[in-house]
Each structure stands twice: as C-alpha cells, then as structure tokens.
Design a protein around this nucleic acid. Structure first.
Length: 434
RNA sequence: GUCCCCGUCGUCCAGAGGCCCAGGACGUGGCCCUUUCAAGGCUAAAACACGGGUUCGAAUCCCGUCGGGGACGCCA
C-alpha cells in the first residue's frame, strides 16, 4: 500500500500552492487505499512559527483533507514534528560520518558527494539526470546540531516508509541530493512526482502581492471548499476527459500521477468563481443554509418564510456565499432608501404615483395572489392606463427592493406576500410625493 | 553565471505519428429568452514559440534557437 505525506513547514499559512500539493498526495493515497501522513517540518528555529501549525491544519480540514498519521491523530511513527525527532537525525548523521559518507566541517557535518551521475525517474517529467559535479558537499547537520532539510526529509521518509513523494517542482534540483542520501543509507529512494508550480496572473510565482494566497482567505471571501478542491485539483492536472465539474469522490476515482502536466499553471480567479457558482447550485437548501450561517445580516435565516423558494430565486445570481446577504435583504426588511438614479429614470412622470396607487389597490384584493395573476393584473392595469407594463414593473421593483435590479418581480411579490407588497407600495408612493 | 524543468487559444485542460485545416472549459463578442440583473440556450473570434531534421505523413520523435519558470544556504 502506498504511503504519502504532506510535509509543510510552519513558516506561514497554508497557501494555495501547498494546498494543491497536499491535495494531490491525498488524492493519490485515497485512490489507492494508501496512507496519507502529515508531518510538520519545523527544524528551522529561526523561521518557525508554532501558531502557524494550527493555521495549516485548519486549512487542510477546511478543504476536507484528512490525515491518517500526523499531529492530533498520532500514528506508528510518532512524533510527526521534526523538532521532536532531532536525536534521530543526529544519529543518522553520525552513521554517515562513520560510513565515510560524510565528514565534519567547521562544526557542521557535510555529505561527501561521490563522483558520477545521479538520476531518478520522475512520474511527471520522466527520467532526470544530474552530474554530481554540480552538487556541492552539502551540509546535513548544522553546527548547532539541527539537521538541514535534506537530512530530515530523507531520514523521516525512510522511517515512515514513504513510498511516493509528490511535491512542488522547485524541489527537482534537491532530489539528486536526497537520492544520494538514500543510497548512502543503503535504501531505495521512493518514487518522485514533481508537480508544476502555481503562478499568478502575471506568470510570476504566487506571492502576497497577488492578493489572496492563503486558503483560509478564500473561505472568508465566500468560496466553498468543494469548489476550491475541484478547481485546485484541475490546476496542473487533467482527467483526460472534457468534464470539469467533480465531487471529491469523483476526483479520487479519476486521479493519477501521469495526468499531471509539466508546465506551470496560472491561478485564474474567474474560473474559480465559476466552479464556486456551480458547486453552490449543487448544495441542498439545508447545506446552503448551514454554510450561510454566521454571515452578517442573516440572523433568523432558517425561519424565513418560503426559504427554499427564496433561495432558488437567488442561487443563479450568487457566485459566492458572501453574495447572499445583500440579495436576501429585501426578504428581511423593507427598503428605507430608493436608488436615486432609478427613481429619476422610472418615476419622473408625475402620474406615476397614481399608477402605483392604483396597482396597490388592485393588489390589495386580487386573488389568488400568485405569479400569473399578479402579472396579468399588472399588465391589464398598465393597459387600461395607457402606459407600458415595464414602467409599472420598474416602479414596483423600486418599491419592493429600493433598487433597480432584483430577481423576477412577480416571483418576488408572491414570496413577499400581499401585506408587505401593499405596505411597500404605499410607503414608496408617500416618499415620492414628498 | 552554472544546472534543471517547461513551451497547444488571454487562462486551465484534451491531444501520446495519420481520427487535428487541433477538441472542451473559464473569460470575451454576438444572438435568443426577458420586467431589470443574473442564470440558461445558441453562436463567433481565439493556439500547436521559431528554425532545422526523421518520416509517405509531426502539435505529437530528434537537434538547435528563443522564451518562461525553478534551483544553486549551516531555509524548507
């Protein structure tokens, strides 16, 4: 059974690049019934920020990536924090010195790179070969007796029986050093898959100046984890088909290392938005309400009359969760202000208040109070008064929402109910007369 | 500078010698629907970096050039 790991160092939040790497590892492990390990590489005392561990864990959990071994859950190879395994690395370094594979140098221990070539087969890039003369005798144990990255990953990956290393492209040139270490320890290297990096719109490596790069930032902005998951998994990987909209399970079924592309991928927020919209549409009402919980201005959402109908009216108009509060407003409170431009555009005719009054009168008694009847009523009223139905519709929309844009008017009227419709019309007319 | 990776529409992905005068998606334009805004339907524009080979035949293989990215730390 394959064993894979995601090994972040807690020097910052979980960014989309790291998340994508974790995702591929997880997908592969789940696809093949393997094990997914989370290991914290916190050997750099200087840059390490312990509080970031929580941030990274939260990011993974939000995406729905769980781990079989690692922090919180433990496992047969605990501890999963490198800072707690220092003795192991020191022993390993001593072993290499004893073997003649490493030597002391100003208090540090360096690996003795042998002459020749070092090669490995990458699942994404195929065979890759480096001439050892381009590899310096690299440090494996610092003079403060902390291990360097190369030593700790290799020792841990050996100890933890890691079979597949899936990581960012930027590690390709580190790989020969690590392969050399495996050989020095008398072990066979795992298989490697180096996935392309995620770039910003300017094709530069993703960084703060590209705006949101933290996974949790996307949660704040109203993105769904399943949408982010779907989007990220298809950044640098293709299923081979033309379909793109997938659930997590579908992605697991399809995932394979061979489908990972060799070139860098640009993070396209517009496409993320589209994925989010589509996944939003797939949510049941219950799920949607649960996701919406906690957003400002949505107190009492669950008790809203005809909630399900209201939501289906708004769904096509929302890309993100954060779009809902604003769209939902008219269903919670009467408008207190009316779009000035809209009033000017649609209510400038002096007889408009009268028309709206007349509409209010018929709406007060019309029955049934349903879409078809309301529309018919409005249209024949407009007819008899010699005005366009559109004029009355726009005016009524302003009265109901205070705005120029809204979902379909008649659908809204029904959901608002006779009382509110009448009251809002009356209020709007009195405002107009002032 | 040295080494490594990569190079198909603006972007993501398909294409693993003839099925490709290159396909899907996002975005963009147009049309339809329509009470506004969305959504939806239809449709259009849009790419094999360049130059040499190999081959009856190349987006697909080889070489070179150019371009992009990455690595060259007692960071990970």
């Amino acid at each position: 059974m394959p064993r894979l790991r995601f090994a972040p160092s807690p020097t910052g939040y979980l960014h989309v690049g790291g998340a994508r790497t974790a995702l591929f590892n997880w997908l592969y492990a789940r696809r093949h019934g393997g094990t997914f390990i989370l290991r914290i590489e916190d050997t750099d005392v200087e840059r390490n920020q312990p509080e970031m561990v929580t941030g990274i864990l939260d990011g993974l959990r939000w995406l729905g990536i769980d781990w079989d071994e690692g922090p919180d859950v433990g496992g047969p190879h605990a501890p999963y924090f490198q800072s707690q395994r220092l003795e192991r690395y020191r022993a390993a370094a001593r072993e290499l010195v004893a073997n003649g594979h490493a030597f002391e140098d100003e208090g540090a221990i360096r690996f003795k790179v042998p002459p020749g070539k070092t090669s490995f087969t990458d699942s994404v890039h195929g065979p890759i070969e480096f001439d050892n003369e381009h590899i310096e005798n690299f440090v494996i144990l610092r003079s403060d007796t902390h291990p360097t990255y190369h030593l700790s990953v290799v020792v841990d990956d050996i100890d933890m029986d890691v079979t597949h290393v899936v990581r960012g492209d930027d590690h390709i040139s580190n790989t020969p050093k690590q392969v050399l270490l495996y050989h020095a320890f008398g072990k066979t290297p795992p298989s490697f898959a180096h996935v392309p990096l995620i770039m910003g719109a300017d094709k530069q490596r993703l960084s703060k100046r590209h705006g949101a790069t933290s996974v949790m930032e996307y949660e704040k902005q109203g993105y769904l984890p399943e949408a982010m998951f779907n989007f990220l998994s298809l950044l640098g990987w293709g299923t081979g088909s033309n379909d793109e909209l997938f659930t997590k399970d579908e992605l697991i079924q399809r995932f394979n290392l061979e489908g990972i592309s060799g070139g860098n991928a640009v993070f396209n927020t517009e496409k993320l938005d589209w994925f989010n919209h589509r996944h939003l549409l797939r949510l049941t009402d219950q799920e949607l309400v649960a996701r919406l919980k906690g957003l400002e201005g949505l107190d009492g959402l669950e008790g809203l009359k005809d909630l399900s109908k209201v939501l289906s009216l708004l769904r096509p108009r929302c890309k993100k969760l954060t779009d809902f509060p604003d769209q939902l407003r008219p269903f919670f409170v009467d408008p207190t202000e009316y779009d000035a431009e809209g009033v000017k555009k649609h209510l400038s005719a002096p007889e408009m208040p009268d028309h709206l009054n007349a509409l209010r009168d018929v709406y007060a008694t019309v029955s049934p109070f349903d879409e078809a009847t309301l529309e018919q009523t409005l249209r024949s009223l407009a007819d008899s008064r010699g005005i366009k139905a559109g004029a009355l519709i726009h005016g009524t929309r302003l009265a109901m929402t205070g705005r120029m844009v809204s979902p379909g008017l008649f659908e809204m009227l029904v959901l608002l109910g006779r009382e509110r419709v009448i009251a809002r019309l009356a209020r709007f007319v009195s405002t107009l007369k002032k």
